[in-house]
Amino acid sequence: MNAVTTRYIILWVFSAAFIAAFATYSSISNINLGQPEFITGYVLFGLMLGLATFNARKKLSMVPFGRSAYWLAVHVVGGIAALGLFFIHTGNVWPTGAYEQALAIVFYLVTISGIFGYIIQKIYPKRLVQTELEIIYERIPAELSELREKSESITIACTENTGSDTLARHYMESLRWYFQRPRFFLSHALGGAAAEHWINQSYQTVSRYLSEAEREYLNNLNDLAKYKSKIDFHFACQSMMKYWLLAHVPLAAAVLALIFWHVIVVNVYAL
């Protein structure tokens, strides 16, 4: 068992104990005619604030607040614990008030987006390693630009050296679109092979019309296309791993804003 697994097991056990303790407290308090919602509410509020500090931790990477991996583990387990505490606090899955319903919707979206992010963070890195290619996300545009230049050079050289424009026309009609920018985003993100099929089909479509000399240039272009497909795959996966936070973080901010008003209203009307 590696350290990461051990870390998560400890946190899950702690989290389960935390939830079980509050579920028990809530049940006993409720039976004893108490109002456990107030305690569970404030604990949930504190937990949400604690989860939000993970974002701040990432911004303050220079400060030694502990390894980011620990923070991530706490954030993941704490987020699931927050969902459990939310159910304990509300006593049901769907509240009755319009405002509480809005709060619940946003809370659920935050949770769902978080779970989604956690899952893709677990799946995509392994799949990226399988491409045997490493590329920094920010360098992808430059790399694509370079590939485009290379593919155009090959096409021009083919025309100049063989005197045939068949490959050049094929490039202009088909391959140019492909090299222009990352393609087949959804297929790559979902683990499909649409790009490979498209490359093979493109190759086979033009190959039979080319001479042996031209086919050599086509083979070079095909290698570049396959290489680009890997970059596209990186782009799709890395984009997913970055862009899910565009939903998760703003939704989390919205939840906190909604909670602030909820806390005020509860204190004014019910406490």
């Binding site: 565009l246 973080v249 989390a252 901010a253 804003a257």
Partner: peptide
């Protein structure tokens, strides 16, 4: 950048909720 966009969206989401309230 994505990072900047994320921060901007988070602030906007918070501000939108407060404004709606």
């Amino acid at each position: 950048s994505i990072r900047s966009l994320r921060g901007l969206m988070a602030i906007s989401a918070f501000a939108i909720v407060i404004s709606v309230i």
